[in-house]
C-alpha cells in the first residue's frame, strides 16, 4: 500500500468502515510511515472536534408550533361555513372553494356579495402557517378571510385611491400576473395580487400602515431590501417582506433572495417608495 492509497482509507479506518483485510494493510503501512501517521492524527482530531461538545436544547415551543400547524393542516379544506361568499354571474354558491383558492384560474365575473366584520388588522398567520403545505392555497385562505373579490388594476386604483402601488402584468424575474383582488381589512381597503413563474408563486398585499399586522407565532425581523429598510417574517424558504411608505405597506410573499431578485420586484410594486423608508410603524 502506498501513501495515496493509505490516506484514502484513513477516513473509513477512523470511522470503523474499513474492511478487515484493508485495515491490516493500512496498519502495516502506518507502522513505517510518519506522514500517514500524522495524517491519521489529523483525521481523528477532525472527527473529535466535529462530535457534539454540548447538548443542544430543543426550543420549548417547537412542539407547540408543530401541533398548531398540524391542527391547521387538518383544516386545509375549510368547512362550508367558512368559505368566502362568492358568486359567478347568476350561478350562486356554485364555485367550489378549491377553485376559489386556485390562484391563476380565471375568475372573471365574480361578484362580492358581502363582508364580515373584521377589525382593521391584517392577520397573516393563516397565510404563514399554510406555506409549507401549499402557498397558493394559503394565499387563498388569507384572501377569503378578508372577503376578497377579483378586479382589474383600474378597479383596484378606484377602490383604494389612498394606496400607492403598482401591479404590472410582468414582474422582474419573469413572474406573470394571475389575478388582482380587492380586500377589506375592517374599515380599510386593501389590494392583493397573485403572480406565477413556472409554478412558483409570488403574492403581494397592499394595505394602509395604520392597519395592525399579526403574524401568529412567527417572528418579525428588520431587514434591508435594496436601499430600503423593512421587516420580514420567514417560514422556511418563504419570506413575507414589508416595505412601508406613509400611505401604504407593501407586503410581498416570495421565495426570492432579498439581495438579488427581490429589490427589483419591490421596486416594481412600490414605485413611489422613497429611499431609506420602509420601517413599519405598526
Amino acid at each position: 500500500m502506498n501513501c495515496e492509497q493509505a490516506q484514502e482509507n484513513l477516513g473509513p479506518y477512523v470511522d470503523g468502515e474499513l474492511a478487515p483485510d484493508a485495515c491490516t494493510a493500512l496498519e502495516v503501512h502506518l507502522e513505517d510511515c510518519d506522514t500517514c501517521r500524522a495524517e491519521l492524527a489529523t483525521v481523528r482530531k477532525l472527527a473529535s472536534d466535529l462530535a457534539p461538545q454540548v447538548d443542544t436544547l430543543v426550543p420549548e415551543n417547537l412542539w407547540t408550533a408543530i401541533e398548531q400547524r398540524l391542527d391547521e393542516a387538518g383544516e386545509a379544506t375549510p368547512p362550508t361555513a367558512r368559505r368566502p361568499r362568492w358568486r359567478v354571474g347568476r350561478a350562486p354558491y356554485a364555485l367550489a372553494a378549491a377553485v376559489v383558492f386556485a390562484v391563476g384560474l380565471s375568475l372573471v365575473g365574480l361578484v362580492w356579495t358581502g363582508s364580515s366584520a373584521h377589525a382593521s388588522t391584517v392577520d397573516f398567520s393563516v397565510l404563514l402557517n399554510g406555506l409549507p403545505l401549499d402557498a397558493n392555497q394559503a394565499f387563498g385562505k388569507f384572501l377569503a378571510l378578508y372577503d376578497a373579490r377579483e378586479g382589474s388594476l383600474a378597479d383596484a386604483r378606484q377602490y383604494a385611491p389612498d394606496l400607492s402601488f403598482d401591479i404590472p402584468d410582468l414582474l422582474p424575474g419573469g413572474f406573470h400576473l394571475q389575478a388582482i383582488y380587492l380586500l377589506r381589512f375592517g374599515k380599510l381597503e386593501g389590494v392583493a395580487a397573485a403572480y406565477d413563474r413556472d409554478g412558483e408563486f409570488l403574492g403581494a398585499v397592499f394595505h394602509r400602515p395604520v392597519a395592525k399586522e399579526h403574524f401568529g407565532q412567527h417572528k418579525d425581523y428588520p431587514c434591508v431590501v435594496g436601499k430600503h429598510d423593512g421587516h420580514k417574517v420567514s417560514v422556511g424558504a418563504w419570506r413575507l417582506v414589508h416595505l412601508t411608505d406613509p400611505t401604504t405597506c407593501h407586503c410581498v410573499l416570495s421565495r426570492l433572495d432579498e439581495r438579488t431578485e427581490l429589490p427589483d420586484v419591490m421596486a416594481a410594486v412600490a414605485p413611489a417608495l422613497p429611499e431609506g423608508t420602509g420601517r413599519h410603524g405598526h
Binding site: P59, R69, P132
Partner: peptide
C-alpha cells in the same frame, strides 16, 4: 436558531 426552528417544524409536518 430561527431557521432551524422553522425547518424543524416543516420536517415534522
Amino acid at each position: 436558531p430561527d431557521d432551524a426552528f422553522d425547518l424543524a417544524q416543516e420536517t415534522y409536518l
